[in-house]
Amino acid sequence: MSGAGSVALLLVVVVANPVAAGAQVISGTASAVDGDSLVVDGQKVRLFGIDAPEYTQTCKRGDETWDCGRAAKEKLSALVAGTIVECRRVSVDSYGRAVSTCMAGPEDLNRTMVEQGWAVAYREFSADYVGAEQHAKRNGLGIWAGEFELPSDYRASQLPREPELRGQFVRPRRTAPAGLSSCVIKGNRNRRGQWIYHLPGMPYYEATRPEEMFCTEAEAQAAGYRRAIVRP
């Protein structure tokens, strides 16, 4: 085949088969499904590395119970309204949604939702938004203005009544690496949204179900946990 023929054939192949990288980007108008899920240009998208209250979830501020799940959806809706959203796919979840980092113009949607207190950093999958979460927690923003149940805990509590939630972003809890017997510090998040770690010998150590295990107190603190208070 001549050089000209080869070039022509190559052009046909390129037109018929867009580069794979292009398939990793989803762009278009968007609508919010809840505080961490979108439909972008007709495709379902799950925001990577964050976890917002479920739409039916409630939180507390003092004696007041409020619809924090609905409020999180409304916040995400406001962020995407009237703009083109561009999402870069990281992976695909068990529901076929594109797990992505998304921008609405200059706005980083994943980071903004956590930084403003409408979602938590989903540490089981990424530490990218831990700093943003700590900002929201320090300033009492969004759900951090009161008490709340972690969205993952809420989903688990609803499974007997809502089996369609089963399998949503669940993976085994992190345990100490094999051979590292010093990784015995238990990190646990309670229903008030507090992150507490327990050392061997502390009163509730044996009864604590760890969500994460740490080798040192410094590692636990860097992940946002505080030491359990032992009262006399």
Rank of each mutant, 00 (worst) to 15 (best):
2 S>H: 05
4 A>P: 07
5 G>I: 14
5 G>C: 13
7 V>T: 10
8 A>F: 15
9 L>C: 15
11 L>Q: 14
11 L>V: 14
13 V>T: 11
15 V>R: 14
17 N>M: 11
24 Q>N: 06
25 V>C: 07
26 I>Q: 03
28 G>H: 02
31 S>H: 08
33 V>A: 02
34 D>I: 00
34 D>H: 00
37 S>E: 00
39 V>Y: 06
40 V>G: 04
40 V>H: 05
41 D>W: 05
42 G>N: 02
42 G>L: 02
48 F>V: 05
50 I>D: 01
51 D>T: 02
55 Y>C: 04
57 Q>P: 08
59 C>I: 08
64 E>F: 14
64 E>W: 15
65 T>V: 11
65 T>F: 10
68 C>P: 08
69 G>P: 06
72 A>Y: 00
75 K>W: 02
77 S>G: 02
78 A>T: 09
80 V>A: 00
81 A>N: 11
82 G>N: 09
84 I>W: 06
86 E>K: 12
94 S>A: 09
101 T>R: 08
103 M>D: 04
103 M>N: 03
108 D>R: 07
108 D>P: 03
109 L>I: 13
111 R>N: 12
117 G>M: 01
128 D>V: 00
132 A>R: 02
133 E>Q: 07
141 L>W: 00
145 A>G: 13
147 E>A: 14
149 E>L: 12
149 E>W: 15
157 S>C: 04
160 P>I: 06
165 L>Q: 09
174 R>T: 14
175 T>P: 08
177 P>A: 00
182 S>L: 10
185 I>W: 07
186 K>C: 13
191 R>L: 08
192 R>P: 06
198 H>I: 07
202 M>H: 07
202 M>Y: 09
207 A>T: 11
208 T>I: 04
221 Q>P: 13
228 A>F: 06
229 I>V: 14
